[in-house]
């Protein structure tokens, strides 16, 4: 995206496991994932609801809600003077708190419910600036808040700053949310389905805005979405998740043009094409996502896979096999040895 050396990672996730303690036992929401986000780059995390993508985002801020917790793995953040492992910090610690906002910020899916309804949006930005001692007094913080609102192209920011969340439309609220998240100049922005709750026109405006601000502010972005089109539009690299596993990862162009994993292939096939006739049936992925407490044995996707090989896929978890530089897939079919043996 920028001229910067893309290989220099801002955050490295390794073997991250997140579990939830439920009445039915411990359920794994995130199952040993590894990927990294380069400085200034954008990684899209793609998957259906319940695949663990949002929890992954929350892990980066150490904000997994009870009864969830990070069970193992590491999240190394290289934005500060020296690298820190976020999983080693206590969620309530001061060190963690200082990372949230100025280093890593997050925007959420529901602009409706993501604000405290009792305070003006201005106050909600100002208190964040004050909590991180960005300004000596509230007056200057307020100036900066207005400045941020202008930056996200809200009309008459001086007025909006004193508005309550319920007085704004969904699109405006999401702009305020972006202004809030960016107000401390974070190095990484986690966007958790920021456009899902918005209509299509607003969605593309918000995406444009995010892309433009990312360039301006030189930050990295982790973009969580279930929408392939959005991912292809915004990301450099894409991580496809299924039931807490990474099933495919690689540069966005590669993954979309030559998907290796049957799940990614099915996702791509399920997008209706303009050339389809009206009678063409939608290529939906068969079956339903198993609930996490009914985790299938072997490959997590084998229950819905059209290329399911009995005795193999339901027995053994495939590893991540590289098909081209930086492009990996968790499928035996992508294993060059296996392909060779089959041939």
């Amino acid at each position: 995206m920028t001229g910067r050396n893309m290989s220099e990672p801002l955050i490295e996730i390794e073997g991250l496991v997140t579990e939830f303690r439920t009445e039915g036992g411990v359920v794994r929401a995130v199952n040993g994932i590894d990927f990294s986000i380069p400085k200034g780059g954008t990684v899209a995390v793609l998957g259906e609801s319940g695949c663990g993508k949002s929890v992954t985002g929350q892990c980066l801020l150490n904000l997994v809600r009870k009864p969830g917790y990070i069970a193992s793995g590491s999240i190394r953040y290289h934005g500060g003077d020296k690298p820190v492992d976020i999983t080693k910090l206590k969620p309530t610690s001061e060190a963690m708190r200082k990372l949230r906002g100025p280093e890593i910020a997050m925007i959420f899916q529901e602009p409706m419910t993501s604000f405290d309804p009792l305070f003006t949006v201005g106050e909600q930005i100002i208190e964040m600036l004050m909590a991180h001692q960005r300004f000596p007094n509230r007056r200057e913080a307020r100036e900066h808040a207005i400045e941020m609102l202008r930056k996200v192209r809200l009309p008459s920011p001086e007025i909006i700053v004193d508005r309550y969340p319920h007085q704004l439309s969904g699109g405006m609220r999401q702009r305020v949310m972006i202004a809030l998240a960016l107000s401390c100049g974070p190095k990484l922005l986690i966007a958790d389905e920021p456009t899902t709750a918005l209509d299509v026109t607003t969605e593309s405006q918000i995406l444009d805005l995010l892309r433009q601000l990312q360039g301006e502010m030189d930050m990295a972005m982790m973009f969580i979405t279930h929408d392939l089109a959005v991912a292809s539009e915004i990301a450099d690299e894409v991580v496809v998740m299924y039931l807490g596993y990474i099933v495919e990862r690689g540069p966005v162009a590669e993954v979309l043009s030559a998907p290796q994993h049957p799940y990614t292939q099915a996702l791509l096939d399920s997008i209706p094409k303009l050339t389809d006739s009206a009678s063409t049936r939608l290529n939906a992925i068969q079956g339903m996502v198993p609930t996490p407490d009914q985790m299938p044995s072997g490959c997590p996707f084998h229950t819905r896979c059209t290329k399911f090989m009995a005795g193999l896929c339901d027995q053994k978890l495939p590893g991540l096999y590289e098909s081209s530089a930086g492009h990996v897939a968790r499928c035996f079919l992508a294993d060059p040895q296996f392909a060779g043996a089959a041939a």
Binding site: G101, E110, D116, A131, L180
Partner: peptide
């Protein structure tokens, strides 16, 4: 959900609980 936003903003837990 707004509690998650408040915590993600890096507000001290005391502020999250008592002010909001």
């Amino acid at each position: 959900p707004y509690v998650m936003t408040l915590r993600a903003k890096g507000l001290p837990e005391k502020v999250v609980i008592w002010k909001h």
